[in-house]
Design a protein around this nucleic acid. Structure first.
Lengths: 226, 226
DNA sequence: TTGCTCGATGACAATTCTGTGACATCTTGT
DNA sequence: ACAAGATGTCACAGAATTGTCATCGAGCAA
C-alpha cells in the first residue's frame, strides 16, 4: 500500500484530505510545518507527498527544492492557493511532479495521485492478461477473446497458440518455421501453407478495416504490430 | 534527443507548438488525425505525445485508451479546449500522464514536458537497432524502414540484405561479387547487372538530394558512407 | 451413427519480387 | 576529344511468395 505524506497547515484541509485518502486505502502521514515536512520527506519513506506552498517554517517551494537537491525523487504534488501561472511553472521547475490549485476537486486530486503512483512503478497492475489486439481483447490465460462489444469471439486452440506466439514477439519478425516449431513442435509439422491459413483466420478476427495488425514480411514471415 | 509527437488538427496550433518545441531542441513529429496519431504512437518511437482531445478520425480519449490497452507506456499529455473537470479526470483515468487546458501558456507546457521526460528517464530504447542512413532509418531486426516523417518505407527482402551487407562494411569498398556471394550465395548467382539494379532501388530510398550515400567506385564496386 | 468442429491440404488467384536486356549516361585512358 | 568500357535507369516478363477458398478426414459429443 502506498504511503502518502500531507504537508499542510490548515487543519480543515488536512483532515479532509487525510480522511479521503485513507478512505481510498492509502496510508497517510502528516506534517504541519515546512521544515518538519522536509525532514520527513528526506527519510525517503513515502511514495508521494502532497505539499502546500504557503507553510510556516519553510515554503513549499523551498521544501521541494531542498528535496531534489538532496537527490530524493519522491513524487511531489504542490497544493497552491494562488492561481497564478508563475507558481505553477516555478513549482514544476523546482522539481515538483504536479500541482493542483485550490480550490481543487477531490476527484481530480485523486486521479492525479493515481497517475503519479502508477507511473512511479507503483503497484497498479492493470488487467494484466487481457491484451487488446486490433478488434479484440484476448486473455491467453483463460483462452478467451472478446470483441469491441464485449461479446465472446470463438477462437480455436491453435489459433490462440499462434496468436500467443506472435504476441510474445510483437514487433519482431516471426518465420513460418518459427511458428511451426513453437506451436506444432519440432517432430510433427504440417505444410507451411497451414500457417498461412491460420493467419487468414486470425486476420479475419483481429484486423480492423483501417489497421492490419498481422503484417506480411514478404520472403521472411509475419510480424504482429499491436 | 527526445522525440515528441504532436497530434493536433488545428494547423496554427500545431505549427506554433512544433516550432517552439523544435527551438527547445526536441525532435518533433506530427499527425493531424486521431487514427493516424494512434498508429504512430503504437510504433513506440516517441518519448512523449501531445494529444489534442478533439480530433478527426478518433478522439484523443480513445487514442489514449487504445494506447494503454496495447501496453504502450509512452507518456501522453492531453490538450483539451474545454475546462471541464470531467475531461481532466477522464483523461487521467484513461491513462494520460498529464493535461493542459487551452488556452495554455507555453512556459507551463514546456515545464510539464520537462517534468515528464525527466521522470521517464528520457530514452526510447527501441532506437537501439534503428540505423539512420540518409533519408531513412532502418531496423534490420524487424525488417522495417521509416522515412523522415516516420512513415514506413517498403523494402524487399533482398534490398534489406544488400543494405545490411553494405552497412556492415560501411566506409569500405564492396565489389559486386562480394555482394553476390554474400546475398545470393556462392552457388546461384544472377548477372552483375542485377546488383546495379538493386543499388538503384536502394539509392531511390536512402539518398537525399544533397547527399549520396551509396558511392560508385568506378571499376571496383560500391561503398556506403553513413 | 450422426452431426459438429477443428486441423490440414491442395488448387488457384492475387500479389510482390527478381532478374534481364536495352539503351542512356558517365568515367577512364589515350 | 574520342573510344571503350563501366555504370545508371527503365520497363517488363517470369518466378516466387502469399491470400483465399473448398474440401476432406479425424476426433468428439450427443
Amino acid at each position: 500500500m502506498s504511503k502518502i505524506l500531507i504537508v499542510e497547515d490548515e487543519q480543515a484541509m488536512m483532515i479532509g484530505l487525510r480522511d479521503n485518502l485513507e478512505f481510498e486505502g492509502y496510508e497517510v502521514h502528516t506534517a504541519d510545518r515546512g521544515d518538519d515536512g522536509l525532514k520527513k520527506i528526506l527519510s525517503g519513506n513515502y511514495n508521494l507527498v502532497l505539499l502546500d506552498v504557503m507553510l510556516p517554517g519553510m515554503s513549499g517551494f523551498d521544501v521541494c527544492k531542498k528535496t531534489r537537491a538532496a537527490d530524493i525523487e519522491t513524487p511531489i504534488i504542490l497544493l497552491t492557493a494562488r492561481g497564478e501561472e508563475l507558481d505553477k511553472v516555478l513549482g514544476l521547475e523546482l522539481g515538483a511532479d504536479d500541482y493542483v490549485t485550490k480550490p481543487f476537486s477531490l476527484r481530480e486530486l485523486l486521479a492525479r495521485i493515481k497517475v503519479i503512483l502508477r507511473r512511479a512503478g507503483g503497484s497498479v497492475q492493470k488487467d494484466a492478461d487481457l491484451i487488446t489486439i486490433g478488434n479484440i481483447r484476448v486473455s491467453f490465460e483463460s483462452y478467451e477473446a472478446f470483441n469491441a462489444s464485449d461479446e465472446p469471439v470463438k477462437m480455436s486452440h491453435k489459433e490462440f497458440e499462434i496468436l500467443h506466439y506472435l504476441c510474445s514477439h510483437h514487433g519482431k519478425i516471426v518465420t513460418r518455421d518459427d511458428i511451426l516449431d513453437q506451436v506444432w513442435g519440432m517432430d510433427y509439422q504440417p505444410t507451411s501453407r497451414t500457417v498461412d491459413n491460420f493467419i487468414v483466420r486470425l486476420r479475419n478476427k483481429i484486423d480492423t478495416p483501417e489497421n492490419q495488425h498481422i503484417i506480411t514480411v514478404h520472403g521472411v514471415g509475419y510480424k504482429l504490430v499491436l
